[in-house]
Design a protein around this nucleic acid. Structure first.
Lengths: 361, 361
DNA sequence: CTAGAATGCGTTAACGATCACGCGAAAACG
DNA sequence: CGTTTTCGCGTGATCGTTAACGCATTCTAG
């Protein structure tokens, strides 16, 4: 199960190599290589002998050695919002990418960042075109701007693309790395129900075109369908960035109270508006451990934050691309991040994570 | 920040190599190697030139190439309970180890399992001695038997040891990979409070000598200290495996009801005893998504399971050992697993995880 | 004063895989 | 029948690192 593989010389351990195959098939390593990569110039009879040996020895190539031999540097493009947007959320993702990069630098990986303004589709298009012009070997994409992201992916042709921190359904990407938004919505529903068994409940969605955010809300709604009770009001703001508009709407909301589920990181706005000087506490659940939300947790203005572990996401995304492009391994189309629940009592654990201690891979 | 490092020839990308250093220091690669590994036979002046070049070019060795060159197989011993114990919990850990192994087989890693009976210290000692006799290059240890584990670690001398799925505090191990038991206890406290704001609360600890379990309880207690209310009764069973004794005690418990926090995987026993045919539902929170607990979640006999993601833990543990022994990288003394919260509504997501989809690294 | 040891350093063969190159023999062509 | 093309295959360089080996010097000892 673990130690031995088929091997020619006894006494040596480990996976079979091209040399082992060559010996067994009575050919040279060059011939083995040509057969393995079907580069022609080999007789049918010889090729069959080689394939037989490959099967008998259960050969699988040493991808590291392959890579060492090719020694061809791969450059990946990263298309994501500017680091300073969303209260530094993206900076954490970048720190994960850089952590992976420092490990992968010796594996011939380099990256190039293409940032865009998260509230401006034109800015996205511009960065996307620069990226496309750069002829890179792979792309990491944060699809916060849904429509243009879809447009971008369709232009990618053969360049492998890993989507992280979001989702572009039915698009032809190599892999999607994110939290299951539906499941996180389910959990939020449960939390809301426990915090406030009576309800009613309110969801706040800002930028409702985003698939990710819609799924979170759907999960929340689904929980109360399963539970068989709970009235839910939905609250939508299509425009991103209109904080004044949001505040005005929130003031209206004050009149019809209920526990609130905010499907993105702007929960702190809702928390401050509803709980800052209110007599009765409104339970609030939001996303992403940005400083503003952490502060709200600390002071009790907010109850739960569902964290996406952006650092781990960045780390894993770059690795997924590496596995595919450099190692040519199969990459799962979907890699799930755990749902990370933060409240006042365990806040310190989470603020330290990713800096002091190593993130579990 | 990302692409270029110091490099001799322009046009080539990537980290500096020994050749680059040799060129700059006007010596051969052999000399560079001797300096880097302080194998002597180099004059002080030359050594200094080499170190200067190393610093200027910001050299760091390509660990993969190093490993390729040494090509020395490392065998790691794994000391853990028998796969079939604890309702197959350990089998999941093994699947994670095997997943890592299949990736690391080409990196000269092999493993050897040494199983023991989780309820029998003598069985542990026997397996431990076999392991020690085998002269391995590293050890993975699941310290479910606390005292003998500590004894074992002290005998290890120079063999690096990674502890997973538990903890042996103040012991000299390379790294400990686990969930933060205190934090998980905090979260359990919050959940218990939300499920049942009045209390009282009961903790059930089976095998109270286990540091891991004690910390979970301490976290739970701490939450209610922070919250400033909540009466907690503690319930201990020192002997592991005495299910009959446990059942009898649980029947006594029926008379003084309260929400229950079970600090290990035996929560399903408590759930069946208290909730199976009871008029009023007692909230129950336990650990580990073994089939029995999953069934209790499904039927509503239990409310929450805190999962430790054993598959991911196994995967990460072997990798940590690999990083240290083979790559000679620094390994963090503590690697945290996320706290994975399972309830009826998201149960299916968790049962599929680790089989259908890839575990995020 | 010279044999032998110790020092300082370069050369080179691995490790596993890739790929350009080239050689001989057979096949195709005039 | 002689020449070119194609086929089938082996050789060897390469990637970055390690480590054994060997060759000059210089130093020590008898």
């Amino acid at each position: 199960m673990s130690t031995t593989d088929g091997n020619e010389e006894m006494g040596r351990q480990g996976p079979a190599t091209v040399k082992d195959i060559a010996r067994r098939a009575l050919v040279s390593v060059g011939t083995v290589d040509r057969v393995l990569h079907s580069r022609g110039r080999v007789s049918a009879a010889t090729a069959e002998r080689v394939w037989d040996a490959v099967k008998q020895l259960n050969y699988s190539p040493n991808l590291v050695a392959r890579n060492l031999s090719r020694a061809q540097r791969q450059v990946f493009g990263i298309l994501m919002p500017a680091a300073e947007q969303d209260s530094g959320y993206w900076q954490i993702t970048i720190s994960g990418i850089e952590a992976a990069l420092s490990e992968l630098a010796h594996h011939y990986v380099a990256v190039e960042y293409f940032h865009f303004n998260r509230t401006d589709s034109d800015s996205f298009r511009k960065s996307a075109e620069q990226l496309l012009a750069a002829e890179l070997d792979g792309v990491l994409l944060a699809p916060t701007l849904y429509e243009v992201s879809r447009e971008f992916i369709s232009k990618l042709a053969n360049t492998p693309c890993v989507v992280f921190d979001g989702e572009v359904p039915n698009s032809n990407v190599l892999s999607t790395i994110n939290q299951d938004s539906f499941e996180s919505g389910l959990l939020a529903g449960k939390l809301a129900q426990m915090l406030d068994p009576e309800g009613p409940y309110v969801t706040v969605t800002i930028g409702s075109a985003d698939y990710h955010l819609r799924r979170r809300r759907e999960g929340f709604v689904r929980f109360f369908e399963l539970a068989g009770n709970g009235h839910i009001d939905h609250f939508e703001l299509d425009q991103i960035g209109g904080e004044a508009q949001l505040r005005a709407s929130l003031r209206r909301m004050r009149e019809q109270p209920g526990s609130v589920f905010v499907t993105n990181a702007l929960a702190h706005l809702v928390a401050r508006e509803l709980n800052d000087s209110a007599a009765v506490h409104t339970p609030i659940i939001g996303y992403d451990l940005i400083p503003e939300n952490a502060a709200c947790l600390r002071t009790g203005l907010m109850d739960f934050v569902i964290n996406q572990e952006p650092r781990r996401q960045g780390y894993n995304s770059l690795y997924a691309l590496y596995r595919h492009v450099v190692l040519r391994e199969a990459v799962e189309p979907r890699i799930r991040m755990p749902i990370d629940l933060v409240m006042r009592e365990n806040l310190d654990f989470h603020l330290n994570l990713g800096t002091r201690e190593r993130v579990a891979l």
